[in-house]
Simulated scan of single mutants.
Amino acid sequence: MLGSLPTSEQSMTQIHKIHFMDIRSVDLNLLVLFDAMARLRSVSRAAEAIGLSQPATSAALARLRATFDDDLFVRAGAQMEPTPRAQALSPVVQRVVQAIQAEILQPAGFDPASAERSFTLLTPDIGEVAFLPGVLRRLRQAAPLVRLRALSMPRTAAAHALEAGEADLAVGFFPDLQKAGYFRQALFRTSYTCIACAHNAAAPSRMTARQYLAARHIVVRPDGREHMLDRFLEDKGWHRHVTLELSHFMSLLSLLPGSDLVATVPDDIATVVQRHIAVKTIELPFKPPQLQVQQYWHRRMQNDASNRWLRGLFYEVNRRDANARLPDWQAAG
């Protein structure tokens, strides 16, 4: 007799029986009905609890009995009492139903105040100095255990990193991500400013096209990227005299002072450089192109709660009106 077997042997026997029941034939909705019947002992009350008509509930109960090859619940007076088979299954089914409801069917949430995790961002060094200070201030208040990792990589590699889950968000100018499979959200429009050392006598406050092209230029191309300005000048047939090509904007802090070099950089970089060294701005002999700075994410992260929170934070902190100056987060507190 099964009842005389040790507990471990009973479990093995039950598992052996389950092995012969094809799980693909089990309608999980029937387990919800089973749980309601086990608790309420009434077809009508179970029907009301699970939102079915009484005939539909009776039909489902018939399928449930056929699935387990047992009557499961039989009438005894005013109630439907469980059979021994139903009594044995009841606590297991209850745990399964509760687990599905609490852990599978509940929408995934994200609590930034208690979350202890890391996010990876793709952004060039301009993004690190322009976007991260304000974000870090907000993290200290709202998500003290959250960590950020900023990476700079070629535009062609950004798509793979987002698709593979190696990065959560890309922030900046990524025209290669403006394609199917990626979402984007505009943060602000900006343009370019020409700067030079404040004591650079060779750089007037306003340049003609001839003077601009003949000046000794520093050109910054992070990760070898071509900037919109490069293409803009090429379309005009203009070629600058490039003395030095760099991969990091922040190198300008040590290379501009005391030199006769000029650099045409995104407005945010000009603002940051001005906060650290004495520079002057030079009026350009053309209207520079506009840059649309955006944040990008892969479509598989569209409904992820933590990613929604992250990009919401970036948007709130870094959203600006067109051509607005970079906020001075350090001065702000």
Rank of each mutant, 00 (worst) to 15 (best):
Q290M: 12
F249E: 11
L291T: 04
S251E: 14
V262D: 02
V272A: 10
V262M: 08
I277Y: 03
Q292S: 15
S306N: 08
P257D: 03
Q290W: 07
K287F: 05
L291F: 04
L310G: 06
V293K: 04
L256A: 06
V293G: 02
T271K: 10
I269K: 08
P289T: 08
R300W: 13
I277N: 03
Q302L: 11
L310T: 03
R275F: 01
S251F: 03
V279Y: 08
R300K: 13
A305Q: 11
Q295D: 04
D267S: 14
V262F: 00
L252V: 02
D267E: 14
A270S: 14
P289V: 00
V272H: 10
P266L: 12
R308C: 07
Q292E: 15
L255C: 01
R299A: 15
T281N: 06
D267P: 00
I282E: 00
N307S: 14
L291W: 07
A278P: 14
K280P: 11
R275A: 11
T281I: 11
T281E: 15
Q302Y: 09
P288C: 00
L253N: 06
K287C: 07
P285G: 10
F286C: 04
V265M: 09
R311F: 02
Y296N: 10
H248I: 02
I269Q: 01
N307Q: 15
R300M: 12
Y296W: 13
N307M: 15
L252Q: 06
D304R: 13
V293N: 11
A270P: 12
S259Y: 00
A270F: 03
L261V: 00
K287R: 15
Q295R: 10
L253E: 09
Q302F: 13
P289R: 03
R311H: 07
E283V: 14
L310M: 02
F286K: 03
T281G: 12
W309E: 12
P289K: 02
F286Y: 06
I277W: 01
K280N: 09
Q292L: 15
N307L: 15
R275P: 10
L253R: 04
T264Q: 09
A270H: 08
T281Y: 02
S306K: 13
T271Q: 15
K287A: 14
R308D: 05
I282L: 02
S254G: 14
R311Y: 10
L253S: 05
P288G: 05
P257M: 05
Q292Y: 12
P288M: 01
N303F: 13
D260E: 09
L284A: 02
G258W: 09
R300G: 03
R299D: 13
A278F: 08
P257V: 01
F286I: 04
R275G: 13
Q292R: 13
V273S: 04
M250Q: 13
M250Y: 12
L255P: 00
I269Y: 01
M250E: 14
V293H: 08
R311V: 05
M301C: 13
R308S: 07
L284S: 04
S247R: 09
P266S: 10
Y296E: 07
N303C: 07
R275W: 11
R308M: 06
R275I: 05
A263D: 07
R308Q: 14
A263F: 03
L261K: 00
V272D: 07
L284D: 07
P288Y: 01
N307D: 13
T271H: 14
Y296D: 10
W297T: 12
F249Q: 03
V265Y: 09
V273E: 08
Q274Y: 01
S247F: 08
R299P: 00
